[in-house]
């Protein structure tokens, strides 16, 4: 069996195992027999509800979001040819944050007039709209008349993020204590609100987007030698850049609008695999997706068991693992001089 097949099998098994573990674990103690009954739709109502309406959608959402964030992280690093690149750089996160905060602060004014489904999903919808529109602005700023300059996009992304951050700050300054708490929790991310609707929305976007990103793996490999080289190898560089940015914005937009900000998944998962497998996007993208799914699933299971019956915001856990890893990576790079950009 080739390395790729072994890895595919191994990572899939890991994901399935973590899904199994995740169903078991939680604040409510379920023994094997009652879990089995609940899975088959028998036994106590409460347990059936807990398994089918709470735990399973949450586990699935964790896997989907983790996969989406990791695969877009890998794709962005390839696009910017930079190991420190993250979807944040294209404005998607700051835009989602700004719009989510607007919704959280102004919900009392804005929401009563809206239909019920908008009221329920108001923050998610706002965050998604914010994510896409901000990316579109950053893209327009960097694309000029014809060609997209990724270096300009990086700078424009930082500038727009700073502006969005300032407006967000202004809104936070204006907000009440309870709103402030909502905002803080949103920025720390949570899978607590997961339901089947969210799974049904996120799954196709992440799977289809992931598929299309994987299809551009060859181009991202060629980008390693530079855009000019990729062009000489026959790639339509501008189209590919646009495609990668659009899918990244869509995937990240959907993921964080459902869960709030979850940092570091997109950064550490691709790097972990890169250290181990090298940078070949033909495997890096797919395997980042699978490992990212497992990582967030494990992190969420941990988040809801360590302080049970309460739960930790998942962003705290991912950053708690992610930040030290990131520092270690930096120190390692410094000694190896591998970041010769």
């Amino acid at each position: 069996m080739s390395l790729d097949r072994k890895l595919l099998l191994g990572l899939s098994l890991l994901l399935v195992a973590l899904l199994g573990l995740g169903i078991f674990a939680g604040a409510y103690d379920l023994d094997a027999a009652s879990l089995w009954n609940a899975l088959l739709g028998r036994g106590e109502r409460l347990e059936q509800f807990l398994v089918w309406e709470v735990r399973i959608p949450r586990l699935l959402l964790a896997a989907i979001v983790g996969g989406g964030l990791a695969i877009t992280g890998a794709a962005t690093q390839g696009l910017f040819r930079n190991p420190l690149a993250e979807p944040t750089l294209i404005g998607v996160t700051s835009g989602a944050m700004l719009f989510a905060v607007i919704m959280l602060v102004l919900s009392a004014v804005l929401l009563p007039a809206m239909p019920k489904w908008v009221q329920q999903a108001g923050v998610s919808i706002a965050a998604f709209v914010g994510a896409l529109s901000t990316t579109a602005i950053v893209y327009r700023l960097a694309a000029g008349r014809s060609r997209l300059n990724v270096a300009t996009m990086l700078l424009a992304g930082i500038a727009v993020a700073a502006l969005a951050g300032a407006i967000t700050g202004l809104l936070i300054y204006q907000s009440s204590d309870s709103q402030l708490r909502d905002i803080t929790f949103w920025t720390l991310g949570s899978l607590g609100g997961a339901n089947w609707t969210q799974v049904v929305v996120a799954l196709p976007v992440v799977v289809i987007g992931g598929y299309f990103l994987c299809r551009d793996a060859l181009a991202l490999n060629a980008f390693l030698l530079g855009e000019k080289e990729a062009e000489k190898l026959g790639f339509r560089v501008d189209r590919i850049k646009r495609r990668v940015i659009i899918w990244t914005a869509l995937l990240v937009g959907v993921c964080i609008s459902l869960t709030g900000l979850i940092g570091f998944v997109g950064l550490i998962i691709p790097h972990l695999l890169r250290l181990w497998l090298g940078t070949d996007y033909r495997r890096l993208l797919l395997f980042s997706g699978l490992l990212g799914a497992s990582f967030l699933l494990a992190a969420d299971t941990l988040a809801r068991t360590v302080v049970a019956p309460a739960e930790l915001p998942i962003g705290i856990l991912t950053a708690l693992v992610g930040a030290p890893f990131f520092l270690w990576l930096l120190l390692r790079e410094r000694s190896k001089n591998f970041l010769s950009l």
Binding site: G78, N221, L224, G226, K232, L233, G234
Partner: peptide, 30 residues
């Protein structure tokens, strides 16, 4: 065009280190 002409550039800088075999394989990406 990529099948009819190839260009050896003056210098190369890699975004991330990849193996020699991976670089050569890019020749058949077209």
């Amino acid at each position: 065009l990529s099948r009819r002409r190839a260009v050896l550039a003056q210098s190369y800088s890699l975004g991330f280190p990849i193996s020699v075999a991976e670089v050569v394989e890019m020749g058949c990406y077209g």
